[in-house]
């Protein structure tokens, strides 16, 4: 039998939400153009670790396999990113894979990103259009604004910007960088703007914009290239105006 080329994976595992994490190493058969997901699939197919012991297959989440759903985020060689676009050929070996430490681990590489969805609810990241009668067509939007809103709408709630941010951790209640681009996106929309102040109130409150320390890792890490720090500074200006208005007119 000819010698099979393998790739060494070092994976941080955890059996359940409350169990202790531990490291386990695997040698998976190498194929050209494989990504971290296909490497994990090899372990699933043959759950034997590098010592030759049979073990539980590593579990992870993935869905779209084209970096649009955000489900497969994990920390690969120290960097939070999507496993589906992490090509083994382009990674330093051995490949170290960990769950994103910012979120509670459910099992192995699966984390619970609920806090992001809770944050979206808190800032009302939607446009209320339901009514008892037909409200007619929405207002027209200038093309330049539509393009900007489109960039902001690319967010896939993947959690990478939270993992990258030094101010998102157990000691703070910071909602995370992504939320501000969603506030901007819905406040820019002419119909969404009708609820602008409710969203501003939400980011003025607990875990809001005040927690940002301008380390600007988020904008470097975001796989979708969303101008996160521009939204943050733009909302800082909105809050400057809004808080003065609240203060002087109440």
């Amino acid at each position: 039998m000819s010698e099979q080329k393998t790739v060494r994976l070092i994976i941080k595992r955890q059996d359940g939400p409350d169990s202790q994490p531990y490291w386990e190493e695997f040698d998976v058969p190498y194929r050209k153009n494989m990504n971290v997901i296909s490497a994990l699939m090899e372990i699933q197919r043959n759950p034997v670790n590098a010592k030759g012991q049979k073990t539980r297959p590593v579990v992870w989440e993935s869905n779209c396999l084209e970096e649009v759903c955000g489900a497969c985020s994990m920390v690969i060689n120290g960097r939070p990113r999507q496993a589906c676009t992490a090509l083994i050929d382009k990674l330093e070996k051995p490949v170290r894979i960990e769950p994103m430490a910012t979120f509670p681990v459910i099992r192995d590489l699966i984390v619970d990103r609920s806090r992001m969805f809770d944050a979206l609810k808190r800032v009302k990241a939607w446009i209320p259009i339901d009514g008892t009668h037909d409200l007619g067509p929405g207002p027209r939007i200038p093309e330049t604004e539509r393009q900007w809103m489109y960039e902001l709408s690319k967010c896939m709630t993947c959690g990478v910007c939270l993992e990258a941010c030094p101010n998102v951790n157990a000691k703070s209640s910071f909602m995370g960088p992504f939320i501000f681009s969603q506030v901007q996106r819905f406040n820019m929309h002419p119909t969404g703007a009708m609820h602008k102040e409710e969203r501003l109130d939400a980011i003025m409150g607990e875990g809001g914009l005040a927690e940002c320390g301008n380390a600007q890792n988020c904008v470097q890490a975001c796989p979708k290239g969303i101008p996160l720090t521009t939204s943050i500074a733009a909302l800082n200006w909105e809050l400057t105006k809004y808080s003065l208005k609240k203060w002087l007119r109440s």
Partner: peptide, 24 residues
């Protein structure tokens, strides 16, 4: 209090702004 709340991660993000964040 603000400084205490931060969890510096220069090791994985050695960018200019992150360095300034820690230096601040």
């Amino acid at each position: 209090y603000i400084a205490y709340q931060a969890k510096p991660n220069l090791g994985s993000f050695g960018t200019f702004r992150n360095t300034m964040f820690v230096l601040q």
